[in-house]
């Protein structure tokens, strides 16, 4: 009997990692299942079992299961894709650093300065951009209303950077980078359009339940 009490206490210590909203409704229920699946005489939580519980807790905290409308779910996926595209763009710039410089030097040495500025800007800003995409994906997934204007503002910045890139003539000396920028821009446009739909609006600003 005391074995079960010890085991129950260990389970509860891990269940404390779960969000309060989940524990209030389901802690006793999941505990009953854990005790039912425990081995006879088991007094400690197994490693695999503990890992599974902690993983569930982390997932629930990062991605709470609010009834997210489809538009928001898709927008979040597009934002994660945006982070991936940004990473791909960064790697492209680094991989083509030398060849782009060589091509420009051979064609028009006066453009060297613009190329240098373009490359340095991208390498410096891409990690920040990746972080922003991930952060906004997380915040939008949770229905934080401030994330919507912020996402729209970030999309504005992306548009400006694309225009700046075009003005610098990047399309000529770094076509791969401009293709990546176009992909990022499209992802930004679609995700912002999705979170501004009326269905998404109801998710970000829930109306009080009508009785």
């Amino acid at each position: 009997m005391s074995e079960q009490v010890t085991l129950e206490r260990s389970y509860r210590r891990i269940l404390a990692w779960y969000p309060q909203s989940f524990r209030a409704g389901s802690e006793d229920e999941i505990l009953a299942v854990l005790l039912a699946t425990a081995e006879d005489g088991q007094t400690r939580v197994g490693l695999a079992e503990a890992w599974d519980l902690v993983r569930g807790a982390v997932r629930m905290r990062l991605w709470p299961a609010a009834p997210r409308p489809r538009s928001v779910r898709v927008a979040v996926k597009l934002m994660l894709a945006g982070a991936a595209a940004e990473l791909a763009a960064l790697m492209t710039v680094i991989a083509t650093l030398g060849s782009v410089r060589a091509a420009v030097a051979a064609r028009d040495a006066t453009a060297m300065q613009a190329v240098h500025l373009h490359q340095v800007t991208i390498i410096a800003l891409a990690p920040v951009a990746i972080g922003m995409w991930l952060w906004l994906a997380w915040a939008n997934g949770r229905g934080q209303d401030w994330a919507r204007p912020l996402s729209a503002a970030c999309f504005g910045l992306i548009s400006l950077s694309v225009i700046a890139g075009l003005a610098q003539g990047a399309a000529a000396f770094a076509p791969a980078t401009m293709i990546a920028a176009a992909v990022v821009w499209t992802l930004g446009l679609s995700s912002v359009a999705l979170i501004l739909t009326p269905a998404a609006g109801r998710y970000y600003r829930p109306q009080p339940a009508q009785q």
Partner: peptide, 17 residues
């Protein structure tokens, strides 16, 4: 199925209706 996986899935399935 382990309990953590099960209840994370149930939580999500309930939210998604």
């Amino acid at each position: 199925l382990r309990a953590g996986t099960l209840y994370t899935a149930l939580d999500r399935l309930r939210a998604d209706g």
